[in-house]
Design a binder for these strands. Structure first.
Lengths: 245, 245
DNA sequence: GTTTGATGTGACGCCTATGTTACAGCACCT
DNA sequence: AGGTGCTGTAACATAGGCGTCACATCAAAC
């Protein structure tokens, strides 16, 4: 989900410094070039040379930004972007697309697929850095506006704060993500498997019952504010966040 | 042929169960191990010990997933994958590759050749199952579970809620499935056997009279809203959901 | 009207899904 | 090193639903 889940909130001015950036690029020359440059700029680049690797890397740790080459073996950059956008956990990670083609239609396609920005190859290092800064900077305030509200519940992914009925509630990272998921998908039943996929990331080897335990933890966090009844069990199916009854 | 009740009203939690899985593996010990495990997980494994056998098996019936060992006699796993990917009919069948080698280049080669995922031997049964689930789930079509409406009755599988004449009714899992089945197949008589097959699954060993009891339970759930008369008994034949009289 | 098989109905024990607690391993911080 | 907070898992507790039976009632055939 948001980078702030894994790293403590940094002041907005420096939000774009020291970011974890995933570079998905199959041409190793370009890959190295970008990586080196990012390091010099104070970021921590991770590398992936195709879509599958990228997904795996993201599964392990959520980057603050993803740089994707349009042309990739096995899975196109666009497909990768779509996959990232489809998963709740990775939905909001900023993405910059690298493309050799400069024409408008491609640009549109890239942006429509969910990328936040795109750069046409060949590009200058300067330009790349500028775009990265821009996207990271743009992201920071956006996260604070990203406040999610459902009934008496309110989440602020930017500051990682949650409140119920006005009073602040203390949530661990996983509980936060779990509640965030339910609040952005209310009134619908999700199986333990689906919840694992969406909140933890897909194919992590985690017992389904672990979901129950986190539901329990979330409920007891909500209990003081009398909002725990919103999180309902649907026997035989899963769980649901609801406003009804 | 009866209208098939293929999509359960409950979330697609178990959508990946009962899959036909082709296991292509020459070492019979591993083959047996995998087959046994798959059976226990509710799948139906088919076995092939080399590429030719695999192709033949696929020709007869299209599996939902193929597990291929990298190293095979006569035709390598990669070749098999390529063959499968080359044929229009088998192009989209999900493939998981088993490999003893763990190095990056092989991994890339495997994925490039068209496999959807790969597992490095030795692997845990747990991991295997997790990957299988993930791949099958990824393939599974997004079930657009729409609200089902019949007369004054309304079912929403997504939220797992049911209402009759506007008022919410409380149904257990089985009652929900039963009502969903009738609502998607109205005006038609079904025998107890057919109902068992469709709602419980066609492999269960359950007394036919059990259907009567569930009909009874469903009726009493519908009674408060005066909709229980829609569920009629057809003496000597079975039950029917009808709008007529 | 009686017979006879089919269906309705209420109760009961079992089993599984879920709730809940405890614990051991980690990563992080000091 | 030690402490702290969080995580995933196991183990135990509980509850709710399920399948079955026994008996009541009903409907058709005679």
């Amino acid at each position: 989900m948001e980078p702030s889940y894994t790293s403590p909130p940094t002041p907005p001015t420096e939000a774009y410094l020291g970011a974890n950036i995933l570079v998905v690029e199959d041409e190793s020359a370009i890959q190295e070039l970008i990586a080196l440059n990012l390091q010099q700029a104070g970021h921590e680049p991770k590398l992936a040379s195709d879509g599958a690797e990228a997904l795996e890397s993201v599964r392990e740790s959520l980057p603050d930004l993803v740089l994707v080459d349009w042309m990739l073996p096995t899975m196109s950059g666009i497909d990768l972007v779509k996959r990232l956008r489809a998963n709740e956990r990775t939905r909001t990670v900023p993405i910059i697309m690298l493309t050799a083609r400069a024409d408008e239609s491609d640009k549109l396609l890239g942006l429509e697929s969910g990328a936040d920005d795109y750069i046409t190859k060949p590009f200058s290092i300067k330009e790349l850095n500028a775009r990265i800064k821009a996207v990271l900077r743009r992201r920071a305030p956006q996260m604070t506006e990203d406040r999610v509200v459902f009934k008496a519940l309110s989440l602020d992914p930017g500051t990682h704060r949650a409140s119920a009925n006005g009073q602040e509630i203390d949530l661990g990272p996983t509980e936060f993500k779990l509640l965030h998921f339910f609040m952005t998908h209310p009134e619908r039943v999700y199986s333990r498997t689906q919840i694992l996929d969406q909140v933890w990331g897909d194919h992590v080897f985690i017992e389904e019952r672990t979901v129950d335990v986190h539901i329990r933890r979330l409920r007891s966090a909500l209990e003081p504010s009398n909002t725990d009844h919103l999180l309902q069990t649907v026997r035989g199916s899963g769980y649901r966040l609801t406003a009804i009854a």
